[in-house]
């Protein structure tokens, strides 16, 4: 059975109005923090440039690819769910979404470990204060997103599946929000200073 929701209604954006309010608030929060980071870089341009050189942009690039791949499989999950296709594909895509999300966290942990071993902690300088606060806050969102997707997966896996299209849409919207935030963080933190 195909699900039909009138998304053109202002109160029903895909994912639900409450989720979109959260998404905008999150984007504004991260956006303002990134703008503050750029502002402070004007006061200490050399510190920011030299600190940026201490980051490994390859980690950032691979993490971008991992998150986008994960988001791709989440979008595929939603397509299959909306088409009312068998749950086999839905479950497979959800597992791939979770797998790439976990890979993102693994690589981030390796990066954090490198930084801690090099003594580049949150108090090292202004750049690293922003680096730790912004990326850790994003990682928390990724962990919450993974918990939400895992909940959807176990819901779909049940013999008497009661998962609604709205549930999958809302979790997909939250997961893609993590992509959006990372797409802002990656160029500003890893590349532009």
């Amino acid at each position: 059975m195909k699900a039909v929701i009138n998304y053109k209604n202002i109160y029903y954006p895909p994912g639900g109005i409450l989720m979109w309010i959260i998404i905008y608030l999150e984007l504004i929060t991260f956006g303002l923090a990134l703008l503050a980071m750029v502002y402070y870089s004007l006061e200490e341009p050399e510190v920011f440039h030299n600190s940026r050189l201490l980051l490994n942009p390859t980690y950032g690039l691979i993490n971008t690819i991992l998150l986008l791949t994960s988001g791709f499989f989440m979008a595929a999950t939603l397509n299959e769910f909306k088409e009312g296709n068998n749950t086999k594909k839905v479950k497979k895509y959800l597992l791939l979404t979770i797998l790439f999300g976990i890979l993102f966290l693994v690589l981030k942990s390796i990066e954090y470990n490198d930084k801690l071993e090099a003594g580049l902690t949150i108090g090292y300088n202004t750049f690293f204060s922003f680096y730790w606060m912004l990326t850790l806050f994003h990682v928390i969102h990724v962990i919450v997103g993974l918990v939400i997707i895992a909940t959807v997966y176990f819901g779909v896996k049940k013999e008497r599946d009661t998962t609604k299209i709205e549930d999958v849409e809302a979790s997909a919207a939250f997961w893609h929000m993590c992509d959006l935030i990372w797409l802002l963080l990656f160029p500003v933190i890893y590349l532009i200073f």
Binding site: Y7, K8, N9, I10, P14, G15, L68, D179, L183, P187
Partner: peptide, 20 residues
């Protein structure tokens, strides 16, 4: 390029293209 990627995720993956 980041703006283009942001738009791609928001409008295609998040289906914002269908929204009000």
């Amino acid at each position: 390029l980041a703006v283009l990627k942001f738009g791609g995720v928001a409008f295609q993956f998040m289906e914002l293209k269908k929204a009000h």
